[in-house]
């Protein structure tokens, strides 16, 4: 997957777990939690959906890497390189 496709995949996951949020104006460098109502259980949903949809395992020590869109995409680029778009 190319970085832009990974970003779109994350947007789709966020759209499913936070359907009341408007994601069109999401700032990629700002943390998700500063822009959206996301608690720890929602965050675990992101991890779970990555596992289910793309078979990406995010170990707990890497959770801080998923703080913002930019850091998430950077973290996932090598891990989703082979994922079909």
């Amino acid at each position: 997957m190319a970085p832009e496709e990974i970003r779109q995949a994350i947007i789709e996951i966020l759209g499913d777990i936070a359907p009341d949020e408007d994601l069109t104006e999401l700032n990629d460098v700002q943390s998700f939690r500063d822009q959206m109502e996301l608690d720890s259980m929602d965050f675990l949903d992101i991890v779970m959906e990555l596992r289910k949809r793309y078979r990406v395992q995010v170990p707990e020590e890497d959770y801080p890497q998923l703080a913002s869109m930019e850091s998430t995409v950077n973290y996932l680029i090598p891990r989703m390189a082979d994922a079909p778009a």
Binding site: D16, I17, A18, P19, E21
Partner: peptide, 8 residues
């Protein structure tokens, strides 16, 4: 109920 809470 919000859509998010309904899902959760």
């Amino acid at each position: 109920q919000s859509r998010k809470d309904a899902r959760r």
